[in-house]
Nucleic acid binder design. Sequence first.
DNA 1: ACTGAGTGATGCCGTAACGGCATCGCAATG
DNA 2: CATTGCGATGCCGTTACGGCATCACTCAGT
Lengths: 300, 300
Amino acid sequence: MYNLRLLRYVDAVARSGSIRKAAEQLNVVSSAVNRRILDIEDEIGTALFERRPRGVRLTAAGELFIAYARKQIADSERMLSEIEDLQSVRRGEVRIAAIEGMAAEFLPRTIEAFQQRHPKIRFRVYICGRGDIHTRLKEFEADIGLVFNPPADAEIRPLLEVEQRLCAFVAPDHPLAARESVRLSDCIAYPLAVPDTSLGGRALLDEFLARRSLRLEPALESNSFEMMRNFAIKSGGVCFQIQSGMPPAHLPGGMHALPLSDRGLRRGRLTLCMEHSRSLPVATARFAEYLKQRLREETS
Amino acid sequence: MYNLRLLRYVDAVARSGSIRKAAEQLNVVSSAVNRRILDIEDEIGTALFERRPRGVRLTAAGELFIAYARKQIADSERMLSEIEDLQSVRRGEVRIAAIEGMAAEFLPRTIEAFQQRHPKIRFRVYICGRGDIHTRLKEFEADIGLVFNPPADAEIRPLLEVEQRLCAFVAPDHPLAARESVRLSDCIAYPLAVPDTSLGGRALLDEFLARRSLRLEPALESNSFEMMRNFAIKSGGVCFQIQSGMPPAHLPGGMHALPLSDRGLRRGRLTLCMEHSRSLPVATARFAEYLKQRLREETS
DNA sequence: ACTGAGTGATGCCGTAACGGCATCGCAATG
DNA sequence: CATTGCGATGCCGTTACGGCATCACTCAGT
């Protein structure tokens, strides 16, 4: 069965109109070129060249074959070039599964900054609940995940963990806005919006409340930080959520994030992770490193 | 260098997600498939598959490669199919060089009839002077030629020769129209249009007149039969031209062709010919046979 | 007519590429 | 721990390939 080298032989013969001349150009003996051409003709069942006393000339079948050969040569070169691009991070796709809190600000900003340097790298981001992230990784729908306090899972390997505090978020003109930190008991007098179990921070809240006589009567419970945030602004209330790598300068709506200072309220872990047996493509691995660096910077 | 069989190996592995399963489907041992894949990966410089405990999975580079491989497989099948079409006369191009007299009626009609049965066969027809036809054949611009009384040429091989009489063409209402044949002397009383040296028949006329006291004073001399014909109709004159395979029922403008019956006026040879060392493509050879048959029918 | 040059085709042979058989090394499962 | 399933590897016989030498034919010049 003919291969690329043989296609180059045929191409050279067609161009020079002579088996010997082509062989010279290819730095092989003419008998080798001749024999390969005869083999191909045998296989196809028809002559690709008319033999003339002073060289050869393409037949009609040869014209069809040479068009195919030249296309193959060009296609293979393009394919190798594309793979080379992939190797040098000039090309690729990064698929991320992340919890909702990363969507408003941190991830868009981080991806945009990375793309400044790698414009041909595409991203695909799935925002989903905490439980879905592991599934996406394990089913190879995503390459890396950003999840809060993930359950133990032998198939998931953490790449980085950063601590995240539970914060109370209030509008800039809220009575508590001027404080450096608050306690849960400070917030009870206002309408409360709390995360449901699919968001980061709910487990921390539940665990803390279970050990206290304190009881929360939330006005709102939601799986959407955006929902909770806007409710807090409108109602003059307080919503709770992990910090999620948001520096104060970047909080949406000018909200203030006030760390909860209650003793016994544990911090959570924001985890960058992947499926444990994966070998990440170059572009993804490069982005994961960049993400780790960014997370470290923004949580220090 | 990878060839089509190896591309099929890679394709089968990608589809089944397992080297052993693919090997079964391909009826080869898995070690052979594995080794070919490792060879390709070596050559390209990157892994095409991630090795998992229960099989393999395409890498990003592998995705690019498989797209290329599948395209190659499809392209080669299409190319073989096209060459097969060529072999079975389902496809092809026929290039003809012919003298002008064939253009009005005979060649169009013959080609059209042939294309009823072979619609994918294309034609390219060059109408040119007698001297140009051999040049076109020898320079491979045309595959077959139709020429009148061609000069001897070792590089040109005749396929068929049919005799052609020199005729006088007159309009249907011309005084000579009712005759079965005429003599040159019968025509002298009318305006005469004669062919120049690039048309068939002129050599016959010249040869005959050189041996007689008769002298023609043509009102028109042209290299275009259409020109001469229309002149004869308009002027109530006579034009001369070889029969050129035109049966009476098909003469343009309802003209009558009256054979010249002068003793000593030789007949000419209409020749179907080709370059002597050529091996004609199937479609062309088939058409040449059809042309021979048609010429025989219409000159008998 | 003879000779030399140029061409594609073919015989022989050593090396490279390939597939088959058997086995190894590792992970997952019961 | 033993078994199963998987890709990887060693060894070997067969097939594919290129190199060297030569053959067969055509063409051009003397």
